[in-house]
Deep mutational scan, measured.
Amino acid sequence: MDALKSAGRALIRSPSLAKQSWGGGGRHRKLPENWTDTRETLLEGMLFSLKYLGMTLVEQPKGEELSAAAIKRIVATAKASGKKLQKVTLKVSPRGIILTDNLTNQLIENVSIYRISYCTADKMHDKVFAYIAQSQHNQSLECHAFLCTKRKMAQAVTLTVAQAFKVAFEFWQVSKEEKEKRDKASQEGGDVLGARQDCTPPLKSLVATGNLLDLEETAKAPLSTVSANTTNMDEVPRPQALSGSSVVWELDDGLDEAFSRLAQSRTNPQVLDTGLTAQDMHYAQCLSPVDWDKPDSSGTEQDDLFSF
C-alpha cells in the first residue's frame, strides 16, 4: 500500500511530472533526481522514447528462454528487412502500455495491464526491452520488442512496467475491499429498513384510530445511509488515497477476473515476472533518469539497429 499512497501523494503535489519523457535525446524537461521519484509518476504514465523492432507469436506467457528466442527472431526479421526502425513513445501506467508513433502521434497499440504476463531486458541484446501480452483480438500470446538507447534504459522500462503492474494490483485490492464494505453496509441498511417496515402498523389501523404518522421519526431512520450505499452501487469504487486528485481509476471486468485468478494461483500475485536478476534490479533502481541518457562506457552510441 505504500507504493499506492506515495504515488497518489506525488501526483497530487505535481501532476505535471508524469508528462516528462525519457530517452528522447535531450528533449525532456528537468528530471527527478532518483528512481523513487520517477516511480511516483506512474499514475498518469511515464513516457519512454524507443524504437519498435516488431512482434512475434509465442506459445507460453512467460520465460527467459522463451523471450530470448522470440527477441532473436524479431531482431533477425528487422535486420533482414533493412528498413529504419519506427520511433515510438511507450506510455507506461497502472492501466497498461500505450504505444504511439512519434511522427504521426497515431495510436499503435493499447495493452491493458492485466494482459501483460512478462517483461524483460534481454541478456543477449542488452539494449532490447520486450514484453509478452495476450492479444486483445484473440487468445494468442505476442512478444513485442523495442530497441532502447542503452542497457540502462531497457532495464528502466522493464522495472517501470513491473512497478505499474504492482500498483494496478494494489488498486484492485483496495477497490475489492471498498466494494465488500459497501455491499455489507448496503445489506445491513436493508435489514434495518426491513425491520422498521415489519414493526410499522398498517396504514388502515392508523387511520381508524385517528393517529398521525410521525414524519420526524421517519426522517431519523437510516434511510439516507441505505440510499447512499445503493444509489451508486454500479459505480466502481476508487482508492481513497486518490481522493481529490485528477486521476480516475476504473476497474473493468477483465482486470477484476484476471487479478482474482492471480490472487488464487500465485504466492506473490502482485509481482510481474521479469528477466532481471536481483543485481540488475538493484543497479537500475539506483540510477537517476539522467543516467539513462548518458552514453555507455563501451563506446559511442549508434542510432541504428545494427549497432548491437
Rank of each mutant, 00 (worst) to 15 (best):
D2M: 07
D2N: 12
L4S: 03
S6Q: 07
A7H: 15
G8L: 06
G8K: 12
G8V: 08
G8F: 01
R9V: 12
A10F: 12
A10N: 12
A10T: 10
I12D: 08
R13K: 12
S14V: 13
S14D: 13
S14N: 05
S14H: 10
P15R: 15
P15C: 00
L17R: 15
A18W: 09
A18Q: 05
K19C: 06
Q20C: 11
W22A: 11
W22E: 12
G23C: 08
G24W: 14
G24R: 02
G24A: 12
G25C: 11
G25I: 07
R27T: 08
R27E: 07
R27Q: 09
R29C: 15
R29L: 11
K30L: 14
L31V: 12
L31R: 12
L31P: 14
P32E: 15
E33F: 13
E33R: 13
E33C: 05
N34V: 13
N34M: 10
T36L: 12
T36W: 08
T36I: 05
T36R: 10
T36Y: 05
T36F: 11
D37R: 06
D37G: 05
R39C: 13
T41H: 14
T41Y: 11
L42Y: 11
L42D: 00
L43W: 05
E44N: 14
G45Q: 06
G45L: 12
G45N: 14
G45R: 15
M46H: 09
K51C: 11
K51Q: 01
Y52M: 02
L53T: 11
T56R: 14
T56E: 10
E59G: 12
E59C: 09
E59W: 13
Q60D: 12
P61Q: 13
P61K: 04
K62T: 09
K62Y: 07
G63I: 08
E64H: 13
E64W: 12
E64N: 12
L66I: 04
S67H: 10
A68T: 15
A68P: 07
A69W: 14
A69L: 15
I71E: 03
K72S: 14
R73C: 12
R73F: 10
V75A: 06
A76Y: 13
S81E: 10
S81V: 03
G82R: 15
Q86M: 12
Q86P: 09
T89Y: 14
T89V: 11
T89S: 03
L90G: 15
L90C: 11
L90F: 13
L90T: 08
K91H: 01
V92N: 12
S93P: 11
P94Y: 09
P94W: 09
P94L: 12
P94M: 12
G96I: 03
I98M: 05
L99M: 15
T100H: 09
T100Q: 08
T100D: 14
N102C: 01
N102S: 12
T104G: 12
Q106T: 13
I108G: 03
I108F: 13
I108R: 11
I108W: 08
N110S: 14
N110E: 11
N110D: 10
S112F: 09
S112W: 14
I113K: 01
Y114W: 02
I116K: 12
T120L: 00
T120D: 11
A121C: 06
D122L: 05
D122P: 13
D122Y: 11
K123A: 11
M124R: 14
H125V: 12
D126N: 12
K127V: 00
V128P: 03
V128A: 06
A130N: 05
A130H: 08
Y131W: 00
I132R: 13
A133G: 15
Q134D: 10
Q134P: 15
Q134L: 15
Q134N: 06
S135W: 09
Q136G: 14
H137S: 15
H137V: 05
N138S: 11
S140E: 13
L141P: 15
C143T: 01
H144R: 13
A145Y: 11
F146Y: 13
C148Q: 00
T149V: 11
T149L: 11
K150F: 10
R151L: 01
K152M: 11
K152V: 13
M153R: 04
M153N: 07
M153A: 03
A154V: 07
A154T: 01
A154I: 00
Q155V: 14
A156T: 02
T158K: 01
L159E: 02
L159I: 11
T160Q: 01
V161P: 02
A162E: 02
A162S: 11
A162D: 01
A164V: 01
A164L: 03
F165S: 01
F165E: 01
F165C: 01
F165W: 15
K166V: 06
V167Q: 02
A168W: 01
A168S: 13
F169C: 01
E170G: 11
E170K: 11
W172F: 01
W172S: 01
Q173D: 03
V174G: 07
V174W: 00
S175G: 01
K176I: 09
K176C: 04
K176R: 12
E177D: 10
E177C: 02
K179H: 15
K179A: 00
E180Q: 05
K181A: 14
K181I: 12
K181V: 04
D183S: 05
D183C: 13
A185V: 15
S186R: 06
S186M: 03
E188M: 05
E188K: 11
V192A: 11
A195T: 15
A195F: 02
R196T: 07
Q197A: 01
Q197H: 06
Q197P: 07
D198S: 03
C199F: 07
C199D: 03
T200M: 03
T200H: 11
T200K: 09
P201N: 08
P202F: 00
L203H: 02
K204C: 09
S205V: 04
L206Y: 06
V207M: 03
V207G: 06
T209A: 07
T209R: 09
N211A: 13
N211W: 06
D214K: 13
D214H: 11
L215W: 14
L215G: 08
E216S: 14
E217W: 02
T218L: 14
T218C: 06
A219D: 11
A219K: 08
K220L: 10
A221G: 07
P222Q: 08
L223V: 12
L223D: 08
V226H: 05
V226T: 12
S227V: 02
A228W: 02
N229A: 15
N229W: 00
N229Y: 09
N232K: 10
N232C: 06
M233Q: 14
D234K: 06
D234P: 02
D234W: 09
E235W: 13
V236M: 08
P237F: 05
P237E: 00
P239Y: 00
P239S: 04
Q240S: 09
L242D: 02
L242R: 12
G244W: 03
G244I: 04
S245I: 14
S246G: 07
V247H: 13
V248I: 00
L251W: 04
D253P: 00
G254D: 13
G254M: 03
G254N: 12
L255Y: 09
L255N: 07
L255A: 00
A258S: 07
A258G: 10
F259L: 02
F259M: 03
F259T: 01
R261H: 07
R261S: 02
L262R: 08
A263H: 02
A263S: 01
A263N: 13
A263V: 10
Q264G: 06
Q264N: 04
S265N: 00
R266V: 00
R266M: 00
R266P: 01
T267S: 09
T267Y: 05
N268A: 01
N268D: 11
P269G: 03
V271T: 12
D273T: 08
D273W: 11
G275C: 15
L276A: 07
T277I: 09
T277D: 02
A278P: 03
A278L: 08
Q279G: 00
Q279E: 03
M281A: 01
M281F: 05
H282G: 13
Y283Q: 04
Q285G: 04
Q285T: 00
Q285S: 00
C286I: 07
S288C: 01
S288L: 15
P289R: 02
P289A: 01
V290C: 06
V290Y: 07
W292A: 00
D293L: 00
D293Y: 15
K294M: 00
K294L: 04
P295W: 06
P295L: 14
P295N: 08
D296V: 03
D296S: 08
D296R: 07
D296K: 14
S297T: 00
S297E: 08
S297L: 00
S297M: 11
G299S: 08
T300N: 00
T300V: 03
E301L: 03
Q302C: 08
Q302D: 01
Q302E: 04
Q302T: 15
D303P: 15
D303E: 08
D304C: 05
L305D: 08
L305K: 09
L305G: 08
